[in-house]
Amino acid sequence: MSALVISNVHCSYNGLDILSDMSVTLEENEILCLLGSSGCGKTTLLKAIAGLLPLKSGEVMINGKVVNKTGFHLPPEQRKIGMIFQDYALFPHMTVMDNVVFGIDELPKKEQQQRAKQVLDLVNLSELSERYPHQLSGGQQQRVAIARALAYQPDLMLLDEPFSNIDSQVRLKLIAEIRQILKKAGVSAVFVTHSKEEAFAFADKLAVLDQGKIVQVGTPDQLYLRPATRFVADFLGGGNYLPATVIDEHHVNTPLGRVCSTVAHHKSDATSYDIFIRPQQISLTANDTGAGVVSDVQFLGASSKVYVKLAQQEFECQVAQHFTAQQAVDLAVMPHELILFDKQSA
């Protein structure tokens, strides 16, 4: 059974369509990430799932139970959803413990205590249970919010840009921690962000949104390797666009020479496309008579980002060797699974 099924959801606010014809499915114990730039409707979709916003049409099903369909709207308090807000929404007048048991206060006292202890242990905050939210750091507040949601044993967890207020130093560590917590607790989750790094690190499944529509859904590597549109390709990390003419199933011709594909690309011969080449797929060789000239180098540690100028175009390359500015180089594209887009009509 799917944890969440969204079909043909439309949503409008003040007469403007925010979401149109949205469909996506989330399997049990899976983490789905809604990725998109701000204003693309990803938070709206999250709130629609939670029941905090009315739908114009479409259906939402959580754990096999319909919560939204035409003429029916299950109020948020009956949806068994845990939600983590960007500002964590901790109740400022309650201690950590009171916050955590807030959703389960109808259980017997003993059970409340037990479950609270369990989740606080899980998020590693047992010692701070008597503190007030304003006495905690951002990361601690975040974990309280998660503990509060987990204690409620939700069918589905929704996270609205949960890491945007967290120090980048600890962000990736926290993401790993929380992913582990969710997996351990066996909760399906939908997570909204505008950062691809967070998305890659956190999600099992990725949905890229643009202007109220889902552009592509798949695993992170699928989307990265086989973006359906230029938007997805750009959003998941930029690269270089070059004109390319198909030679055969495995080869195309580009201004950087012949490029070889590791997988058949199924495009018709002799047609022109735009090829999208990620920075790490270009190799550089120092050569005093090389056609390219290094214009700038950005040191990243394990690798460097090298900008190379060649015949009016600047190429972004990511390589392990070190280069210096003004150095002459040769460029070559390594064989990989090619990404070809139709020519953009001018």
């Binding site: 807000f85 929404a89 007048h93 959703g103």
Partner: peptide, 28 residues
């Protein structure tokens, strides 16, 4: 903050309960 009320509702409280437990004490 709107999110406080939304959180309370998502944690299974009716609007009235959320009002009594969150809005009212905060407006105290």
């Amino acid at each position: 903050s709107v999110t406080l009320m939304q959180s309370a509702q998502l944690l299974g409280k009716t609007p009235l309960q959320a009002f009594c437990r969150i809005s009212l004490p905060l407006a105290r």
